[in-house]
């Protein structure tokens, strides 16, 4: 499912126009992004929680050339799956994993 498929599904199930559904979906993820930007965690009961984890600077490597690359300190979002969702996902093991179009682009 992509974001646009989520918007379509929201429109149908929520009885909204697509334009409204798009505003809704964008608003939800923007609110979440803003919270994470402020370093604030997000807790959605039954779904999971997002936290921001600080990482120290380290020396990495350019995987193509092998040249050392300094990696500055950074903050990354981390998602912990909620218990209910974890079970729900595990119970889908008998089904093939699907996911719309292709690989893993943003």
């Amino acid at each position: 499912m992509t974001k646009s498929e989520l918007i379509d599904a929201m429109a149908e199930r929520g009885k909204l126009t697509k334009a409204r559904a798009e505003l809704v979906v964008n608003c939800v993820f923007e609110a979440m992004t803003e919270a994470l930007q402020q370093g604030e965690g997000i807790e959605i009961r039954g779904f999971g929680s997002f936290t921001v984890r600080p990482y120290k600077a380290y020396s990495g490597r350019n995987p193509r050339t092998g040249a050392p690359v300094p990696v500055p300190p950074k903050r990354l979002p981390f998602f912990k799956v909620g218990k209910d969702l974890k079970e729900l996902v595990n119970n889908s093991r008998h089904l093939a994993i699907t996911g719309g179009d292709d690989g893993d682009d943003d």
Binding site: L95, G99, D104
Partner: peptide, 13 residues
């Protein structure tokens, strides 16, 4: 997710 389908939210993850 419960039917084995992944989700891609562009701009988020």
């Amino acid at each position: 997710l419960g039917r084995g389908e992944k989700i891609k939210i562009s701009g988020f993850g």
